[in-house]
């Protein structure tokens, strides 16, 4: 039995799968809790509000707003968040005018700053 052609085909398929594995980009995930605005905290729980980061356009510039501070890069946001207590968690509120990538970078910054509880809330 001549095995040459079989071995050729097998090696070609092997090379194909190896190359396609290298080309496919590695993926990971962010896993925030999701909430809508109607479920906002009320009553006694409101005394213990988490940090809120608003991701919005300010003068047509995509901006992260944390309290009185406006930041334009995820690195700046992470630096600010790293100075805050992490036990109450953080809410990320994304407005419609920005890109998905910019808003998701806020979730990543919160995770990198040490927040275990990150909640995403879509803004109107």
């Amino acid at each position: 039995m001549n095995m040459t052609s079989l071995i050729d085909v097998t090696f070609l398929l092997l090379v194909y799968f190896m190359v396609s594995m290298v080309i496919s980009r590695p993926e990971d995930r962010l896993n925030p809790t999701i909430r809508t605005q109607d479920e906002s905290v009320s009553g006694d729980a409101a005394d213990f509000q988490p940090q809120v980061v608003e991701v919005m356009l300010v003068n047509n510039v995509p901006t992260y707003r944390l309290g009185q501070h406006d930041m334009v890069s995820p690195e700046q946001l992470e630096e600010k968040l790293a100075n805050l207590p992490t036990d109450l968690g953080v809410f990320i509120r994304g407005s419609s005018g920005i890109s998905v990538g910019f808003a998701m970078a806020a979730i990543q910054a919160a995770r990198d700053a040490g927040f275990e509880e990150v909640t995403y809330v879509p803004m109107e």
Partner: peptide
């Protein structure tokens, strides 16, 4: 669905 996985490219 209480928690969504948002895919990222590493």
């Amino acid at each position: 669905v209480s928690s969504a996985r948002i895919a990222t490219e590493v």
